[in-house]
């Protein structure tokens, strides 16, 4: 379950050591934009050691490496892959080839380290116009790609427009990303809401992202995590409905019915799939019950 993903600068030990208590389902330990070029090595060592020696509890660890047009990304992977991160986030991913470049190097490292093949997943960060247009190709470029991630800030710079709270300027990119990810069968995550002082705006932005089909949303401030988790958690009404769907299916099967209806509506495969997802989340959140 990844409702919320919290970016944490890779060179801030005070924050990283508290990563697991900040409420996010995943943390993105950042070696890229949050870290000045002069601090790249110390951040890399800190993140490596934090992963090696610290527990992150139930919090999934993702590492944002430097982009493949820098001298840093291979060193980042050299240090991080042995720590078996759940996902690597390569930034500024614009083409399927970009994914394959990272994929190949990770494969090399996995082999060298005797790790299971494809143990480490990828969540390419798409933050250019070209990347958005190539979103489906990126999402389906490798088995490692588990999700794609929209970066709104760099994208608006590339689009020559201003980033706004309303986000009209990235609405096409958002819709395109969701469509590409779903077509490729991977998850999709939304760009952070960057006004850390706007406690109301984060709800609006997260609700909008959810309505478009995003799986979850990232944050650059721990203050936004609670709102994101709330928005992307199933409501009790959703959970009740999901159990009703599964019960109706069970009864339908018992009775040998081909088609099952609930409250006058036919229950088809996508509805069942969504109900199953909702129940899985409910169970993870401790809201599950005996079916």
């Amino acid at each position: 379950m990844r409702r919320s993903m919290l970016f944490l600068p890779g060179n801030t030990p005070n924050i990283i050591q508290n990563a697991e208590i900040l409420g996010a389902d995943a943390v993105i330990l950042d070696l890229e934009d949050a870290v000045a070029p002069t601090e790249k090595d110390s951040a890399r060592i800190l993140v490596r050691n934090a992963m090696r020696y610290m527990g992150f509890g139930r919090c999934e660890v993702i590492v944002r490496i430097n982009s493949i047009d820098t001298d840093f990304w291979r060193k980042d992977l050299d240090a991080i892959i042995p720590q078996r991160p759940s996902l690597i986030m390569p930034p500024k991913t614009a083409t399927a080839e970009d994914v394959k470049t990272v994929d190949a190097y990770i494969s090399e490292l996995e082999e060298k380290l005797g790790m299971e093949k494809n143990a480490v997943g990828l969540i390419p960060l798409i933050e250019t116009a070209l990347g958005v247009e190539n979103a489906f190709k990126i999402a389906s470029a490798s088995k490692r790609v588990k999700a794609i991630f929209l970066g709104g800030e760099d994208l608006t710079a590339d689009l020559h427009c201003k980033r706004t709270k309303e986000g009209n300027e990235i609405s096409y990119a958002r819709a395109r990303m969701v469509c590409a990810a779903r077509a490729a069968g991977v998850e999709v995550y939304d760009t952070p809401f960057t006004d850390v002082n706007d406690d109301e705006g984060i709800y609006t932005d997260a609700e909008y992202a959810k309505s478009l089909g995003f799986t979850g949303k990232s944050a650059i401030s721990p203050r936004h995590v609670k709102a994101i988790n709330e928005v992307f958690s199933p409501s009790m009404k959703d959970i009740d409905y999901a159990y009703e769907v599964m019960e109706a299916i069970r009864i339908g099967k018992e009775q040998g019915k081909g088609a099952v209806a609930l409250r006058g509506k036919m229950i088809d495969a996508p509805i069942v799939a969504r109900a199953q997802q909702t129940i899985e989340m409910a169970v993870e959140l401790g809201l599950g019950r005996e079916a």
Binding site: N18, I21, L22, S221, P222, R223
Partner: peptide, 8 residues
């Protein structure tokens, strides 16, 4: 405080 640890 705005420190998330302090708030927790």
């Amino acid at each position: 405080t705005r420190d998330p640890v302090g708030l927790i």
